[in-house]
Design a protein around this nucleic acid. Sequence first.
DNA 1: AATGCATCTGCAATAAATTGCAATAACAAG
DNA 2: CTTGTTATTGCAATTTATTGCAGATGCATT
Lengths: 145, 145
Amino acid sequence: MPHCRTLIEALHQRGHRITPQREMVIETIAHSGRHMTAEEVYEEVQARSRAINIATIYRTLDLLVEEGLASRADLGGGRVVYATIRHGPHIHLVCRQCGAVTDVEAELFKPLFEYICAHYGFICSPQHFAIHGLCAACQQATSNE
Amino acid sequence: MPHCRTLIEALHQRGHRITPQREMVIETIAHSGRHMTAEEVYEEVQARSRAINIATIYRTLDLLVEEGLASRADLGGGRVVYATIRHGPHIHLVCRQCGAVTDVEAELFKPLFEYICAHYGFICSPQHFAIHGLCAACQQATSNE
DNA sequence: AATGCATCTGCAATAAATTGCAATAACAAG
DNA sequence: CTTGTTATTGCAATTTATTGCAGATGCATT
């Protein structure tokens, strides 16, 4: 069963209605195989089919996150990206200069997360965060000035 | 020399003009001894003195960050907090349920940051990020339902 | 297949951060 | 101290995400 079908069925089983709008959003994000902003989803859906309101995109993505079927990562600067759970948990390295995003296995952070949990009682959600910094390319560009 | 004087002088030395508005913003954030949102700074400044435009608050805080005199931490969900550099670098643990923020020494992350730098060439800015998750109190509240 | 109701969508209004521009004021130079 | 330059401010307009509400629609039941 394709991934988007799984997600649609999961939504249905939890008592949510399956509308054409929701199907389009889910298919778009499931097929893309990457992280997308609400705006990107909106553009793809509009190109593919009839009009759909941007508010519906936001609400559908939020619903998926609430139901645990997708993850929301706030990259800062107003950029919020979504991906289905098929993407394993990972951390986003966001360059503050060019905005490029690199994904890192969340596995790397496990010992740290466990330490934080032990000392602060705080359970880290691995799929939901970003680290800001300077990517390799921008470091070179800066040093060459 | 008080911290706010140091900051004002640093701004001046870099060719920026010292206006009453900027002084008020800097004094507010320097004296508060904590992280503040632009909105919080706005309210404190207004309470203390004559009117000042919210746009000026944003621009002044941005200027401080650009000049490396303050740090900006994007806590997600539209919450952006500022603090002067006197605050050592630290990470924010943000509870996705109650919104509470706990600060953690950035020192803890050093080995990880070094690993990321070695493998991805990405330099992490330690003062500028937040980890989302569930705080101890909210875990209890959830399990007691 | 038809029906009824609760959910969902689209629209418009709202909230919040950012930006352009004209007027103001800091401050360096004389 | 006065003056001129130009950075800075305040206002208003713009952009972008969110929310309330009335009408539309999915879908369980009959």
